[in-house]
């Protein structure tokens, strides 16, 4: 067996860095800088953001009220139709997620509506080994619709509290966040982010959580979850910091 000093180890690790093989990639990223920056900036600048940015506070309230009314009408209809069946495109995504669950068995656990009238649907489908959570944002005032899908061996199967996050941005340039998960029935959750902000999570009668927050960005990590149970003075504290991949 040979001994290896620190410099030799560093050289060995550096030589194994496959990212060094992408010189053309880096060159393209520099030469196409203007086009890429334009694409990023334009992805946020639309007629609605201009309208929103230039609108007075009163106009914003008016636009929001109209949006809420419109989405309440159309969103309710859409939700009723989809209540028992995840949209086909999402069934396909769930089936292809590699989590060995069938999208056909997904159930809608909660719905919510954000400040601009976006209807948020929280779907979940699980097997004994893993759970897929699907968060769908639909019927937004700027016409965008999309969603989030994540899967893993969630604690839902064991009755342990958990919280996840999905983020999205409308053309109002405000980051919107959906906190979702499960808490013991009757408890209250306090979620702490790395910027020190805290959010209260209130589960429904089944323990399902869906809290919609404006202005909470992906830039801040979820740090801790405090679970407060009635009659128990000390909260259960769950460390949410991942040990990174």
């Amino acid at each position: 067996m040979s001994e290896m000093n620190d410099d030799e180890l560093n050289r060995l690790i550096q030589a194994a860095d496959l990212a060094e093989d992408f010189s053309s990639f880096y060159l393209l990223a520099i030469t196409k800088q203007t086009e890429i920056i334009t694409a990023i900036e334009n992805s946020k600048v639309t007629w609605f953001s201009r309208l929103w940015a230039n609108a007075s506070r009163l106009k914003k309230m008016f636009i929001s009220c109209i949006a809420v009314l419109l989405v309440s009408f159309f969103g309710t209809t859409t939700t009723l139709v989809a209540r028992n069946l995840l949209p086909d495109s999402w069934i396909q995504s769930v089936n292809e997620s590699g989590c060995d669950v069938s999208g056909e068995n997904a159930r809608l656990v909660r719905t919510g509506q954000d400040s601009l009238g976006t209807v948020i649907e929280y779907w979940t489908v699980g097997s004994k080994k893993s759970v897929v959570d699907v968060i769908i944002q639909k019927g937004t005032v700027d016409g965008a619709s999309g969603g989030t899908l994540g899967c893993g061996p969630r604690q839902r199967n064991t009755g342990e509290p958990f919280v996840s996050r999905a983020g999205y941005a409308l053309n109002d340039r405000i980051p919107h966040t959906t906190f979702f998960g499960w808490l013991p029935i009757g408890s209250t959750g306090i979620l702490e982010l790395s910027d020190g902000s805290r959010f209260t999570l209130r589960p429904d009668a089944n323990g399902d959580v869906l809290e919609l927050v404006d202005g909470s960005d992906f830039g801040f990590a979820m740090v801790r979850l405090f679970v407060l149970r009635p009659g128990i003075s000390d909260p259960t504290i769950i460390n949410l910091q991942k040990e990174t991949k």
Partner: peptide
């Protein structure tokens, strides 16, 4: 790090942006 740790997102607007940037970076690659 947070983007990587987050679950897969698929909003249409982001998809459009990713497709655009991919077409710029990957077409000749």
């Amino acid at each position: 790090q947070n983007v990587i740790n987050n679950t897969r997102r698929a909003s249409r607007r982001r998809k459009r942006l990713v497709e655009k940037v991919s077409s710029l970076l990957e077409s000749d690659l």
